[in-house]
Write a protein that binds this DNA or RNA. Structure first.
Length: 502
RNA sequence: GCCGCCUUAGCUCAGUUGGUUAGAGCGCCUGAUUGUGGAUCAGGAGGUCCCUGGUUCGAGACCAGGAGGUGGUACCA
């Protein structure tokens, strides 16, 4: 007899970089999304939901000039095997590119400026890390077609309101604002930006940008190394620097150090630093306007500050940039302090829609990293309490399932979450173990003799667990946490116990 | 991508200079108790020692390559 061939069993695992969300994780996130949406809506933004998939062409940046444009995105080609292969498609990697597409596609019908918010998952095909996944939620609000920095100021204020709305008290976060034009002005002074030939020194500027972005990680000395020759990290890996001279590095470092007590003083200091640079002066003026608007709106430096060390990685930002950071300290499982870093960021990007229409369309917007925010709130202990499970009506007598279902219905109609035990009722102990695992506050028991006497047993599982910690076997068996009540009192007694714990 | 560390039961881990049948705690299952969660006691199930090759009389251990994980770093629209 031939042995049946062993087909290897499929492995039940979550794909790397992805996550499964259970119970509270889902409901907590939904609650947070609702809170954010409410603020966005209040500020006059309209909801927009676009497709999760875009053509690679519309997403831009990763054009199919290689076999698979899978660098960073999940992409595939329609009908790749056929003679006439179709378009390249990809899962969206952020909400901004789809917005640019929508703004271009519907530009004749949409109001201008167009203000919309969007929330949902985005996907990135990158190496996952701790707290970094390949699918995560973003929550964006953008104003398209508004050149005024009032639009930027408004977004910052809204970001502040939003963070407070989701439960981060004032003082536990700070929103820092800077302006790319100021940075460009400083780089002009430092001699790494030539206004007459913007492509010159492009690589160096990129390196400078990234170096500044790492100030909080490596400190002054580390950034200086990155501005100069380069930096060797702990593992012995060497990162090339921007190759600036000491004098040039001094100018850049001075810029990051330009933060003063008040916004006005910072602005004044920046004005000195940008010297004759025209774009620099423009940026400083914009920052000044933003600072004024904040002050007038009542958003003081306890919420929003001008901070020249904020640069926001690289990319398409052309004017004001902003970033929200949580300032409270959080310890990880091993008790080490953990940095949450920025939970939201954004800025002005004036060139994105231009890709589609050829017309300059100024836009500015913010993106909140919902998963990070949730993680922070959980770590802070403001979330993540296991909520109570349903009341479990146990099954003593299989023939009387109808009676048990009736109890369940009554409880449900009274607005109390309840269910009948649906597993194998043979072993009664297992029914209570199940109730335990479900975090049920109460179990209901009715066997034959209770039925005849018209009563039920109501077991307070929370009290029972507490008593069990110190009880002897005898005490435990006396069941002090169990009450016999008339069948008709089921709702009243259950409600009494639940309310005792809420 | 680059550098370091790690990989033994469901989980956390031990395993001596390379030596018989690879262990512990926790968890899980069964029973003490067919109408009661915890604790206790008794018993039980559970292993490709990450994979491939090499050295050796003999490898969980040593060597080489690979995979996976993890930490740092780089990139990040």
């Amino acid at each position: 007899m031939a042995k049946p061939k062993k087909t290897p069993r499929p492995k039940a695992i979550t794909p790397k970089g992805f996550q499964d969300y259970f119970g509270v994780e889902v409901t907590e996130r939904k609650t947070m999304l609702d809170q954010i949406a409410e603020v966005y809506h209040l500020y006059g933004f309209e909801a927009l939901e676009t497709s999760a998939v875009e053509t690679v062409e519309a997403l831009g940046k990763f054009l199919p000039d290689v076999d698979r444009p899978n660098e960073g995105v999940f992409a595939w080609q329609e009908d790749a095997d056929l003679e006439k292969p179709g378009d390249w498609m990809a899962l969206r990697y952020d909400m901004t590119a789809p917005l640019a597409r929508v703004a271009a596609q519907y530009r004749n019908d949409l109001p201008s400026p167009y203000r919309r918010f969007a929330m949902g998952p985005v996907w990135r095909n990158e190496k996952p890390g701790p707290g970094r996944f390949r699918q995560f939620y973003q929550c964006d609000a953008d104003t398209v077609g508004a050149p005024s920095v009032a639009a930027d100021a408004e977004i910052c204020m809204m970001l502040s309101d939003t963070l407070e709305a989701v439960g981060i008290p004032r003082g536990d976060y700070i929103i820092r604002v800077n302006n790319r034009k100021v940075l460009n002005g400083v780089m002009e002074v430092a001699g790494v930006l030539d206004p007459s030939d913007p492509t010159k020194f492009e690589d160096e500027r990129g390196t400078v940008l990234r170096a500044i972005d790492k100030l909080d990680k490596f400190g002054d000395a580390g950034v200086r190394l990155l501005l100069g020759k380069g930096r060797m990290d702990d593992s012995g890996d060497f990162t090339d620097g921007a190759g600036l001279t000491d004098a040039q590095a001094d100018i850049v470092m001075g810029f990051m150090d330009a933060k003063r007590e008040t916004g006005a003083e910072t602005v004044a200091r920046l004005m000195e630093l940008v010297g004759d640079s025209q774009v620099g002066a423009e940026g400083v003026a914009e920052l000044e306007t933003i600072a004024d608007l904040m002050a007038q709106g009542g958003y003081g430096p306890d919420r929003i500050v001008i901070d020249p060390s904020v640069v926001r990685g690289l990319g398409y930002y052309t004017g004001p940039v902003y970033e929200a950071e949580l300032t409270f300290e959080v310890k990880d499982e091993k008790g080490r302090p953990r940095q949450f870093g920025s939970v939201a960021g954004g800025g002005r990007y004036d060139d994105l829609v231009k890709r589609f229409t050829g017309q300059e369309v100024p836009a500015t917007g913010v993106s909140i990293g919902v998963d990070r925010l949730l993680a922070a709130l959980r770590a802070k202990g403001r979330m993540g309490d296991q909520p109570a499970g349903p009341i479990v009506v146990t099954v003593m007598d299989k023939a009387r399932i109808g009676d048990y279902m009736e109890m369940v219905s009554e409880l449900r109609q009274a607005g109390i979450r309840a269910e009948m035990y649906l597993g194998n009722p043979k072993n009664f102990g297992n029914q209570l173990k199940y109730a335990d695992k479900r975090q049920s506050p109460v179990a209901i028991i009715q066997g034959d003799d209770e039925h005849e006497r018209g009563v039920i047993q109501i077991k307070d599982l929370i009290l029972g667990a507490k008593l069990a910690e110190n009880a002897t076997l005898e005490e435990w068996k006396e069941r002090p946490s169990q009450y016999e009540v008339p069948r008709g009192d089921i709702i009243a007694k259950v409600r009494e116990i639940i309310e005792m714990y809420s």
